[in-house]
């Protein structure tokens, strides 16, 4: 019985050793380790070993981002927040038509985002022309269809029944995408980046953002080749 209790105590202390070394235990646990290690050579040796490991891990440095990287990261995030707000805002609550909305974007300082903002605005214009006046290629039947797929990364979305193609184009544009194809008979659109190809995480984030819009049922990422 006493032997079993001793083994149990040993196991408990063994598990706590890393946080004894790092100072992350409460008073009672610390006392438990100290009381046990005095009579346990294995735990005393493990304590030394973990202290050495802790020293090595603590000494491993990683590159730190500089101020310019931090500024760029903030600009990207701020733009993402604006995009999400634009996508999530109910259409009626925003008032006016798309032209008014675009004018509002200009007045509201979208130009401060520079070239990407101009690209997005141009994408809106092109996408709307395409949907309203131009041909609407219908070669994407499912979210995973590969035939005729674009060369680079893309998003595929399934729009809610009766969703206005112009509204889909607008949603795509505020997320930094342009309608490349669709809608198919099933309401599937393919969207391609309006500017530089985003990374996987950015694609996933854009898909999630679009999916939050009531006009979009599903959004999936098709990574580039």
């Amino acid at each position: 019985m006493a032997e079993r209790a001793r083994i149990s105590e040993h196991d408990e202390v063994w598990m706590l050793i890393p946080w004894y070394v790092s100072g992350g235990l409460d008073e009672a646990e610390r006392a438990q380790v100290e009381a046990h290690r005095a009579g346990c050579a294995d735990c005393a040796a493990e304590l030394e070993r973990q202290a050495r490991l802790a020293g090595c891990v603590a000494a491993l440095e990683v590159p730190e981002p500089d101020a310019a990287a931090e500024d760029r990261a903030w600009q990207r995030l701020a733009q993402r927040i604006d995009t999400e707000a634009a996508v999530l805002a109910p259409r009626e609550a925003r008032g006016g038509g798309l032209l008014e909305r675009l004018a509002e974007m200009f007045r509201g300082g979208w130009l401060s985002y520079g070239v990407p903002a101009v690209a997005v605005v141009l994408a809106v214009a092109v996408a709307i022309w395409w949907q309203v006046d131009g041909p609407a290629p219908k070669f994407y039947d499912t979210l995973t269809a590969e035939e005729g797929a674009p060369d680079g990364p893309a998003l595929r979305i399934r729009a809610a029944e009766g969703a206005d193609p112009a509204r889909i184009a607008e949603l795509a544009a505020v997320a930094g995408f342009a309608v490349r194809g669709g809608p198919s008979e099933g309401g599937v659109y393919t969207l391609v980046p309006a500017g530089e190809a985003p990374g996987e995480a950015a694609l996933a984030a854009a898909a999630a953002t679009l999916e939050a819009a009531p006009e979009v049922l599903f959004a999936t990422v098709r990574p580039g080749p």
């Binding site: 790092s22 202290a51 050495r52 802790a54 020293g55």
Partner: peptide
């Protein structure tokens, strides 16, 4: 063998 170690707040 990881070199000398140190217990921070033991």
């Amino acid at each position: 063998d990881l070199g000398p170690g140190e217990v921070r707040h033991g």
